Amino acid sequence: MATRPLALVTGASSGIGFELAHLCANNGFDLLIVADRPEIDAAADSLRGLGGATVEAVQVDLSTEEGVDTLLAAAKGRPVEALLANAGHGLGHAFLDQDWKAARHVVDTNITGTIYLIHKVGKEMRARKGGKILITGSVAGFTPGAFQAVYNGTKAFIDSFSHALRNELKDSGVTVTCLMPGATETEFFERAGMTDTKVGTAPKDDPADVAKTGFEAMMRGDGDVVHGLHNKLQTTVANVTPAAMLAEQHRKMAEPGSAKS
C-alpha cells in the first residue's frame, strides 16, 4: 500500500515540468507524470528511484477532456496530494497567419484542458480538505503579445484564474499557487516557431531554477511567485504602462526575423 503522497505533474517530458517532477521525487512524492510527447517515457526512466519515488508515465493530449480523463484513470483512485499543472505551449507569428487548428490547440491545452484537470482534481482535494495546486502561468500574461497573441492571452487567463481560484478555496485547506516565469531555456521557442526572434535568441532563465522557485512557493502555500528580478521588474512596469505601448515593445521582441535586425 502506498504511503508517499502522489504528485501529478503535467508537461513533464522536459523543461520546467521535468524539473518540477524531479523536485517532487526528491521531496517525498511519488509521481504521475504526463506529456503529449513520447519523450515522457525517457523522462520517467530518469526519475525512477529518485528519493525512493515510484513513477507512472502517461502520454496523452491534454487539450482534450478525453486525454485528461485517461490521465486521471492512471491514478487508479489514488488521491492526488499535489497537482502541478504545467502543460502548455506557444505559437509565434501574426495571428491571422497562424494555422487555426494550431492556434486552437494552444487555447485548448493552456486553458481548457488545464482548468478541466484542475476542476476534477480540485473537487477531490476540497472534499478531503487538503491539497496543493501549482499552476504555471507566465509574466507574458501581463503583456499584449503582438506576434504571440494567442499564447499571451491564454496566460493572462491562467494568471487571473489562479488568483480567483485561490480566493474561492481560501478556507478549504487547499492552496493554489501561480508560478509566473519569464523566458526560460526550454523547447518552448523552437516548438512555437520563434527561433528567429529576439526573445527566441536572447539569454533565458534556467528551468531548474524556475522550477525550484515554483516548488518552494507551492510547498509554502504562497499565492503567486514571479521568478527572477528582471521578470519582477517587468511585471511591475507592465502594471503602469499603456497596453498599446506594451504591445509595441512585445512586437520588437517577437516579430519573425527580429533576431536579424
Rank of each mutant, 00 (worst) to 15 (best):
M180P: 02
S162E: 06
D159I: 01
G182K: 07
K129P: 08
K155P: 02
A164R: 12
E187D: 15
T177N: 04
C178D: 14
T136G: 12
E190Y: 00
R126D: 06
G141W: 06
T186S: 14
T136I: 10
V150H: 07
E124G: 07
A183P: 15
H163Y: 08
R128G: 01
T154S: 09
T177W: 07
R126S: 07
A164M: 15
A183G: 13
I158V: 08
F161L: 12
K155S: 07
A146F: 09
D171H: 15
D159V: 01
T136C: 10
A149L: 13
V139F: 05
M125R: 11
E187L: 12
A164F: 08
V139N: 00
P181Q: 07
G193Q: 13
A146K: 14
L134R: 08
T154P: 06
T143Q: 12
K129C: 11
V174A: 11
S162T: 06
L179M: 11
S172M: 15
N152Y: 06
F189A: 12
A192W: 13
N152V: 01
M125G: 10
V150W: 09
A146H: 11
S162G: 13
M125Y: 14
S160E: 05
V174T: 10
G130L: 14
A149E: 15
D171V: 14
S162F: 04
S160K: 09
L134V: 08
I135K: 00
E124H: 15
P144D: 05
A127N: 03
E187N: 15
G145I: 01
G153I: 00
K123Y: 09
G141S: 08
E124F: 05
A183C: 09
E185H: 10
E190V: 01
T177I: 05
S138L: 04
V176Q: 06
L134D: 04
A164S: 15
K155A: 02
D171I: 14
S162H: 02
G145R: 03
K123H: 11
N167G: 11
A127G: 04
K170I: 05
S172H: 14
G182R: 08
I135W: 03
R166Y: 01
A156N: 08
